[in-house]
Design a protein around this nucleic acid. Structure first.
Lengths: 216, 216
DNA sequence: TGCCATAAATCAAACGATTGATTAATTCCT
DNA sequence: AGGAATTAATCAATCGTTTGATTTATGGCA
């Protein structure tokens, strides 16, 4: 059934084309609304290739989830133990991470379809949540909690710190997910680099306020 | 095509049953993944009733969007012009609105499917965004901006104030949308009234910090 | 290298199943 | 009786998948 588990073949382009098509179509229209024929058409190949390379539509979907998690994990960067770090340096590191996340989510059309893909399936598939969490959400969250702890002096495992990190992420994620509503509310036509930068600066200011408040 | 535009008939129960089924199935599985036969089965009626009462599957979907917007608008409460209000009273009003939003979104299983329904279609249908925004997001956002302006002394139309209100809403919305991930990160089994309360208290603290910071 | 046998990959075509919609007949209620 | 409402049955269209044949790439032998 499965073709060849390893890589490096002329069929690799077909596989990556199908995954790219999966990002776009699954991410924008959803799993059920995306037909295998449109996937194949978008990928410039035949319908049977989906079953041949991925075992079926579900297999392609799972491969898309893996690939999306991989790319975002790359963009977010490997979580590293901050170790002993000064409060000011921790704040700077948090600001840098926040700016990076905002740039990743708000700029770039490709990120939009990937994020849409992940969030759309997050509430539908427990497996996707597992992949997401194990791959980068969990480790990155722990790293940010350690930074937050170093910045405020509170224990990294405390509920307060973990909630603070989640709501920091939630803010920037909302500007991606709720973008259609945000555009109307702000009177913007689109979120370009300009608007993304202003959002990022605002979120950084919020971050500073939150840290100052919980500092001990 | 349309049966009777008005209400109050023996068929009204069929209509409301179909809309309730639409909330659950559209909200959890999405539009395309929900078949008319399952909708009818869940509603305890025949497939042809969908076409008879709503003109078709798309009509039922639109009716669900209208009903969802209506119920959430009721729960959020009619936006009222705060008028001349003291800073402290404005802060209190903001806190109350935030607590109400958190309770609405985080408690209750019914709210989950409605919010899921709305967010799912937000990026797919411009019409849904229009309904959402006109019905309560827009007016409520303006009201919250007025409160924020009264609390901080900044102009209500400024970009800073509008962004602040959006990120306040984004925080609480993320705890609903990203709930599967949040549960793992917090080590919780579910978001019950207890957890919802602790999230709300945290968000209120964040709100106070944000207001204190931008106060002039 | 040159040739062929084998495997890998792609293709058009068709399968059964399910989709949303429609029809005609039936039941319900006033 | 008579319109409103519901039902079972059926429609064409599309779904994901499979099939067998064909094309393309790979590896061994001279």
């Amino acid at each position: 059934m499965a073709p060849r588990p390893d890589s490096s073949g002329p069929a690799e382009t077909t596989r990556s084309n199908l995954i790219a098509a999966g990002f776009e179509l699954f991410g924008t229209a959803g799993y059920a609304a995306t037909s295998t024929r449109r996937l194949a058409e978008r990928a410039g190949t035949n319908v049977a290739s989906i079953a041949y390379h991925f075992g079926g539509k579900a297999g392609l979907h799972a491969a898309c989830a893996q690939a999306a998690a991989e790319r975002i994990a790359d963009a977010v960067g490997a979580p590293r133990d901050p170790g002993a770090i000064g409060a000011d340096a921790a704040v700077a590191a948090l600001e840098k991470a926040l700016r990076g996340l905002a740039a990743l989510l708000l700029n770039g059309e490709q990120a939009a379809s990937m994020v849409g893909f992940l969030v759309r399936e997050m509430n539908a598939s427990e497996e996707i949540v597992q992949i997401l969490f194990d791959r980068f959400v969990g480790p990155k969250h722990r790293e940010l909690c350690a930074l937050w702890a170093a910045a405020t002096g509170r224990p990294a495992e405390s509920e307060e710190v973990r909630l603070s990190v989640f709501s920091m992420i939630g803010q920037v994620l909302y500007f991606r997910l709720g973008q259609p509503v945000v555009l109307r509310g702000m009177g913007w036509d689109a979120v370009g680099p300009d608007e993304a930068g202003r959002i990022a600066e605002h979120l950084v200011a919020q971050l500073r306020a939150s840290i100052d408040r919980s500092r001990i």
